[in-house]
Amino acid sequence: MRNKITVTLTVAALAWLGSSHSTLADGEIVAAFTKNQVDPHFEGVRAGVEQMAKKMHATVRQYVPTKPNNITEGMSQLEDVGVTKPAVILFMPIDPKAQLPTIKRLIEGGTPIVNYNDKAGDAPYLSFVGEDDYKLAYDIAKTLFEHLGGKGNVVILEGVKGSNTGDERKRGFDAALKEYPNIKLLASQPANFQRLLGLQVMENFIQQFSDIDGVLSAADASALGAAEALKSAGRTKTAVVSINGVPEAVEAVKEGSLLAIAEFNGFKIGCVATEIGLRAIRGEKTPKRLLIPGAIITKANFAEWLVPYDKRTCPTAESYAAGQ
C-alpha cells in the first residue's frame, strides 16, 4: 500500500512538474502581428520571430492582414486574439490611435503584449523593441552630406505623412540638414515607402531640377524606384541613401546604385521582441525598452545583410543591453 502511495505521489509530482514546465517555460503560443505580406522588411520580422520562438520552444501564430496595412482586418485580428488568448502578443500598429483602445482592453484582460517595430502609443506593454527612426534618418543624412563634401542640392522622398515612422525619419533628415548650411533642400515629397511613387516623384524632380546631388529616401522601396528613375535619365552621379536594408537594396549598394542604407533590421527586431516577450511571461526580468542600434550599410560592409533570413542567427537581447 505504501509503495502504491509512493508511486502515485511520484507520478503526480512528475505530472505537476511537467505541466508547470509547459505553462511557465515551454510551448507557449506567441501571436505575432505584422502589417503586410508585400514588404520584405516584415518577412524579416516574421523570420526572426519564428527562429527565436523555435529556439525557446514556443509556437508562433502569425497575424497578417490579407490586404496590405488594412486597419479593418488588423482590428478583427486583434479581436480574434482576445478570444484565443495566446501566451503573449507581439504587436505593431497599423493605426496606433484606432488600435490602442483594443490593445488596452487586451492587457487589462490579462494578455501580455510586447510592442515592436513601431510605437503603438501609451499602454502598459511588457516592453518596446524597435529602432530609433529619428537617429537612423539623422545618421544616414549625415553620411550623404559628408559624401557630398558638405555642399550640394538634395531632395527628400518622405514616408507616409502622419505615420510615426515617416514623421520621425523626416525629423531626422531635417535635423541633419540644419547642421549643413551649404546643403540645399530643393524639395521634399511623400513617396509613401512605395517603389512606384518613388520612381514617379523622382521622375518629376528630375524634370524640375537640373542639378540634384543627393536623394534622402525614408525607405528602401522608394529609394530603389528613385534609383531606377535616375538611371533611365542618365543621372548616375546623384547619390541615393535610404533606411531599412532589405536584401534587394543591399544588392543595390553592392552594385553602386544606392550609396548607403541605415539599417532598420526587421529580423533582429523580431528575434529580440520574441525573446523579451517569452522571458517576461516566464517570470524573468526584462527591459521596458530596447532600441536596436542600426548600422550604416555601405560597399565596405554589405555582405552581412545579403545572408538569407533562414541562414541568419538571432541576436539576443543581452547583446544590446549595454547600449541602452
Binding site: D39, Q194, E228
Partner: peptide, 13 residues
C-alpha cells in the same frame, strides 16, 4: 520592366 521589380503589392493600389 519599368520598376525592374515585381512585388506582391504592385497592382493593389
Amino acid at each position: 520592366a519599368r520598376l525592374n521589380a515585381a512585388e506582391p503589392g504592385i497592382g493593389e493600389p
